[in-house]
C-alpha cells in the first residue's frame, strides 16, 4: 500500500528524548482522523516502546534509537529500532508481569498490545530490536 507521508527521526538513547518521541508521534498522528483518546493511546504505546529501548537496549547513553512513522490511507505504522543487546526471549518479555527491574511493572508490551491494533517484535541478540506498532484509522478521510 502506498505511503502518504513518512518521517524518520534519530534520537540519542536518553530518557529526556522519550517525551520528544511521544510528541512527534502525536503530531504525526494528527494527520489521521484519530480521536483525542486514540492519540493518547498512541502516546502511551510510543512512550513504552522508546522507554524499553532506552532502559534495556544499551549500556551507554550515546547510542541511537531510530523512529520511522508511516502514514497510509487506513493506518499509521510506528517503527522503533535500536541496535542494542536484543531480547533473548520475546515470548517471556511480552508477559505482563515480566520485568528485569523490581521498580518497573513489566507492563510495557501489555500497554502497546492494548492500545495498538498490531504489535510485532523482531529481535536478535547483539544486533538489536525492532518494534512495529500499527494503529488503524477508522475514518479514512485523511486531513
Amino acid at each position: 500500500m502506498q505511503i502518504k507521508n513518512q518521517i524518520k527521526i534519530s534520537l540519542q538513547s536518553l530518557s529526556e528524548n522519550i517525551g520528544i518521541a511521544r510528541l512527534a508521534a502525536a503530531t504525526f498522528s494528527a494527520q489521521a482522523n484519530f480521536t483525542l483518546n486514540e492519540v493518547e493511546e498512541i502516546k502511551v504505546a510510543i512512550s513504552e516502546a522508546v522507554s524499553n529501548a532506552v532502559i534495556h537496549a544499551y549500556e551507554k547513553s550515546d547510542e541511537v534509537i531510530e523512529l520511522i512513522f508511516n502514514l497510509y490511507v487506513d493506518k499509521v505504522e510506528y517503527i522503533i529500532i535500536d541496535h542494542g543487546k536484543g531480547i533473548a526471549d520475546i515470548a517471556e518479555a511480552r508477559k505482563p508481569s515480566y520485568s528485569s527491574d523490581p521498580e518497573r511493572m513489566g507492563l510495557g508490551f501489555a500497554f502497546m498490545e492494548s492500545f495498538m491494533d498490531e504489535l510485532q517484535i523482531n529481535s536478535e541478540i547483539g544486533m538489536g530490536t525492532t518494534v512495529r506498532l500499527v494503529k488503524k484509522i477508522s475514518n479514512h478521510d485523511i486531513h
Binding site: E40, E48, S51, M105, L107, G108, F111
Partner: peptide, 8 residues
C-alpha cells in the same frame, strides 16, 4: 500523561 514507568 503517565506510562508504566510512572506507575512503576
Amino acid at each position: 500523561f503517565i506510562d508504566s514507568s510512572g506507575i512503576g
